[in-house]
């Protein structure tokens, strides 16, 4: 698993969830693997290096301004960072632009992609389980539609008092 710890570290900053919560989804490995399928290894190395510099320069706390300047607005790293956030929330890999893929991606990637029958350059849901573990659902005070049932009648509870929402932090 390529640089999994770095992937979690960066993800924790991008999503504002603690690493244990991200690991707790059980699908971090799949996301990291997906990333390696579409982004060149040397580009990932540079990204993690860039991020660790941001941490080092500021005593382990990443300055939001610096993150925007060095990473999110960067034409190479920005699309990766945004795709990482989207994976955690929506469990979807969104196709990179052709231009970006030609320069930094692995356009020739041809082995089967998890969760889909044939390799596809289009947006796809990473796996059954990933869909269920998307972070957007608990954040909305809900649960993934079709999974993690909260129980009979919970939809009548006041949203904040709902026992379904106790683990939403």
């Amino acid at each position: 698993m390529y640089r999994l710890d770095d992937f979690y570290d960066l993800s924790a900053t991008l999503t504002d969830y603690p690493v244990t919560r991200l690991i707790g989804t059980g699908v971090g490995n799949e996301y990291n693997q997906t990333l390696s399928q579409w982004v060149r290894q040397d580009v990932l190395d540079e990204l993690y290096h860039c991020f660790s510099q941001l941490e080092r320069n500021n005593d382990g706390q990443v300055c939001p301004q610096a993150l925007r300047h060095q990473l999110l607005s960067n034409e190479k790293y920005g699309p990766i960072a945004r795709n990482i956030i989207k994976m955690w929330y929506l469990s979807i890999w969104y196709k990179m632009t052709d231009n970006w893929s030609m320069t930094y991606g692995i356009p020739a990637y041809s082995s089967p992609v998890i969760g889909v029958e044939s390799p596809t350059p289009e947006d796809y849901i990473i796996s059954n389980n990933a869909y269920i573990q998307g972070l957007v659902w608990p954040l909305m005070g809900s649960h993934p539609m079709g999974a993690k049932q909260p129980g009979y009648g919970t939809w009548s509870d006041a949203p904040l008092n709902s026992i379904a929402s106790i683990h939403l932090q």
Partner: peptide, 28 residues
Amino acid sequence: PISTVPDLIDNKNLYGAELKRAISSVYP
């Protein structure tokens, strides 16, 4: 949320705590 959250990330340029706040204060 599947079709609408990408806009918050790609165009509204939200991440981290701000993104969390945007989702948890609007979607419910």
